[in-house]
Design a protein around this nucleic acid. Structure first.
Lengths: 345, 345
DNA sequence: GATGCTAGTTAGATTGATCCAATGGACGCA
DNA sequence: TGCGTCCATTGGATCAATCTAACTAGCATC
């Protein structure tokens, strides 16, 4: 039986210093890659650290210095494939920069978000990447006293760094495609939680309809989840007028809506066009394959981290809004022109 | 323009102590919910902490005490929906216990895993939940000197805590179902990386075939990813004998294999049965819907955390192996009996 | 010979909480 | 009153790093 958690005292700077025949301060400088130490000394210290099996204690460093080399990733839900990809991209980018990520989910609940934020501050993270929960107020974020980059959604009245897709323009193009395909009576599903991202998407849709002289969309106030998608089939049946296009606030909602609608007798791509937003992997395998707006979550995560790292380097820099272009991916679920093809927007 | 990161010195125990008219030690006891302090004193201290806007500094506490209230989550890939669910379950369970999770991905690469483990140790995490990368050696884990619960896979020769599905029994039942449906010539896809989990699945399949006097499966040595799934179509066409059943090592591989096979002219569920393992949400929406073995990743994550918390409480406890039961979910992709139904195994 | 400069190194103070041993006061009991 | 307990509280040391300012050579300059 191997020893489990041996209470061996780990060696400290002092031991390394003794081994190398220098002071603690010098060892500290070497470990932090300071240009102040001579090459020979540096080599000697590194050898000594290796020899005694030294392990850096970031906790002790944190106490004295202001940096922890950690960042918080606070997203809505981890097991939504969209956010999973966003988190994967953010984690990889942080890792590459020598940071390590704390992960927490808000479930779009302000209380949970508040708890998580408190823990992250207790841990003295250097910065936070946040998909703010519905109802988050600007003071909550500004009051953190921490660099915070928002992703996907913005807290109203908070003019900080932000990374997200060009929702309005993208959805406008998506709706334009549907209209060109002959669709006229639009429903927008997922208006249950009107955060800034949803509002932009809805705005894009409204603008396209207005431009073509069509009536505004019917709103289904369901959450943007699989559960929300399942509710859609029932709600659609109850509408006074039969719609011919269902624009879903995100892919996941569409994934659940499509089978439910099929069971209810709708012919997806035929009498009803269905679209998503995101273009996660499942969009290509569901049948009919989903017409959607590609927003590249992985890249959004990477971009948000880039903004965060920049902000850490230069706290006084002007706030940056990284609005990433989207791309319309036309598949079968919208029927009409361009079936199975992809086209830029 | 709101102040960005005001260099306000955060109040410390000393300030709270002064405000409450007690010593630092007493404040510390209150903050840690010690039963030693009198109720009146406790209330006074809590009010004082609130009044001065005190924020606990876990870094300082860590330096003195041995606990950080953090744990590491080290998984293969975050954007595989299976692991995303596992991580979501683990994060929720850790959160409920007052812990916060570091997240990192190994990409099944020992070097990356090693780097992540080093960072986690530098941060002095209390414990680690690990899906060990291929080729991980027992000493690497035992040498951490840290509580470590393995999930999904085991490092050979390491007898520690473990949480994972009953792969062998599950796949045996799955294969039994296919055989009962008339399938005879089996291919196993995803044998590119033979970790313990894959080996168990393969064992289960082999056992079922042997029991029914059928020849062993053909192995396709592709990775268990979407890319691996796409390679499958080409490889199947090249086989000397046409198979009638494709057992995929996981759902994600099957999701990519099915459309690729369809394009190559195979009739899924008809001339070729295809199955996955996991039963993530996409399994129900792909067409034909995927027959798979439900392994409940979320519950595996929760269970692994339960084991980890137990180990933290009692480092000397006997190692526990939590082997969670699986459930056969029969859908269309395997054709034959039980179409669209679900059945226990 | 005094002075200034630079590169490399260092001693000692500091960070904010916890641990430990000690202390003061209230209480019970002979 | 005196003594032993028990409870609540405390001062000082401690954890392992970083920071600050100072110091030492070595060399060039005036």
């Amino acid at each position: 039986m191997a020893p489990r958690h041996p209470e061996t005292r780990r060696p400290t700077l002092t031991e390394v210093a003794a081994e190398a025949g220098v002071s603690r301060a010098t060892v500290s400088l070497v470990l932090r890659d300071s240009p102040l130490v001579a090459a020979a000394t540096r080599a000697r210290v590194q050898a000594a650290a290796e020899a005694v099996g030294y392990l850096y204690n970031r906790g002790a460093a944190t106490l004295r210095a202001a940096r922890t080399k950690t960042a918080g990733l606070l997203v809505t839900e981890i097991d939504n494939p969209f956010f999973a990809e966003l988190v994967a991209g953010a984690e990889a980018a942080l890792d590459a920069a020598g940071y390590i990520a704390f992960l927490a989910a808000t479930g779009d609940c302000r209380d949970r978000q508040g708890r998580a934020l408190r823990r992250l501050r207790e841990q003295r993270v250097d910065g936070i990447l946040l998909c703010p929960a519905i109802g988050t107020r600007a003071e909550e974020i500004a009051g953190l006293g921490l660099p915070c980059v928002q992703a996907m959604r913005r807290t109203p009245g908070l003019a900080g760094d932000f990374a997200g897709p060009a929702n309005r323009e993208g959805v406008e193009a998506l709706a334009g495609h549907l209209i060109a395909g002959g669709r006229r009576r639009f429903v927008f599903a997922g208006a249950g939680m009107l955060h800034s991202g949803v509002r932009e998407r809805l705005d894009g849709l409204r603008r396209a309809l207005r431009r073509h002289g069509l009536p505004p969309p019917v709103l289904l106030r369901v959450p943007g989840t699989r559960a929300g998608g399942e509710a859609v089939a029932r709600l659609l049946a109850d509408l006074p007028e039969r719609p011919d296009a269902l624009v879903c606030v995100n892919d996941v909602l569409a994934f659940a809506a499509i089978p439910a609608l099929q069971r209810a007798g709708w012919e997806i791509g035929g009498d009803l066009a269905v679209t998503g937003i995101g273009d996660v992997a499942e969009a290509a395998t569901i049948r009919p394959a989903l017409t959607t707006l590609r927003t590249e979550p992985r890249r959004i995560g990477e971009t948000a981290v880039r903004l965060l790292l920049r902000r850490l380097q230069d706290p006084a820099a002007a706030a940056e809004q990284a609005i990433l272009p989207t791309r319309l991916v036309v598949r079968e679920s919208c029927g009409g022109a361009g079936n199975l093809a992809m086209s830029d927007c």
